[in-house]
């Protein structure tokens, strides 16, 4: 139990997907202008990453390893992820039409969010068990959502500030993200994930 908890904290906070591993930066800069879209994106991505972690684990063990097809990993994983995104889209449309309306265009684009493929490749390279892999995927995506929401909050305030024109927009966003990354480095004492 303690191992699982440490592993999850490690995946969510210490080796945060965005701030330590640099995955999913496009969505990090793209959809964090408002807290509610950032939270919705975090939620949808969490779902996709968890589902595709499980699916990719199964594909890796029962298909690629079993038949010695390791070189097809990149191609098959991206197909699995695209299907997982499609599945998420159908599920959300059925379960919560309101959320579906809110996420709209962002949903299909999760396919090219490198956090999804990155987490899948990380858990395959880490030789994890199925339970470990699922929890790792889930915890990583929670860390992703957390940082998305924090950064969106910061940017909502930044949008009101009067800043030099040269720094306005993305550059200041990067500098703020740099400070946020420094803050998250404080977690590195907790575990080695």
């Amino acid at each position: 139990m303690k191992d699982f908890a440490l592993m999850m904290i490690g995946a969510a906070l210490v080796n945060n997907v965005i701030l330590a591993r640099f995955l999913g930066l496009c969505s990090f800069m793209g959809v964090t202008t408002r807290i509610d879209t950032a939270a919705g994106m975090g939620l949808a991505t969490t779902f996709v990453i968890t589902v595709s972690s499980m699916a990719d684990w199964a594909v890796q063990h029962y298909l690629l390893d079993a038949f010695g097809l390791g070189y097809l990993r990149t191609v098959t994983f991206i197909l699995v992820i695209a299907s997982a995104v499609q599945f998420t889209e159908l599920t959300i449309k059925k379960v919560s039409p309101a959320l579906f309306q809110m996420l709209g265009i962002y949903l299909p684009l999760i396919t090219t969010n490198c956090a999804v493929l990155g987490v899948a490749l990380l858990l395959v390279e880490g030789h994890m068990s199925f339970l470990n892999a699922t929890l790792f995927g889930f915890a990583s995506s929670l860390g992703y959502s957390l940082v998305m929401v924090i950064f969106a909050g910061l940017r909502e305030r930044l949008a009101l500030a009067d800043v030099p024109r040269l720094f306005a927009g993305p550059p200041l966003g990067f500098i703020v993200a740099s400070l946020l990354a420094m803050a998250f480095m404080g977690f590195s004492g907790i575990s080695t994930g």
Binding site: P170, P171, L172, G173, F174, I175, A181, M182
Partner: peptide, 13 residues
Amino acid sequence: PPGGFLVTGLLVV
């Protein structure tokens, strides 16, 4: 990691 964000931001400027 923080240096990556900082340098990229400054180079955009």
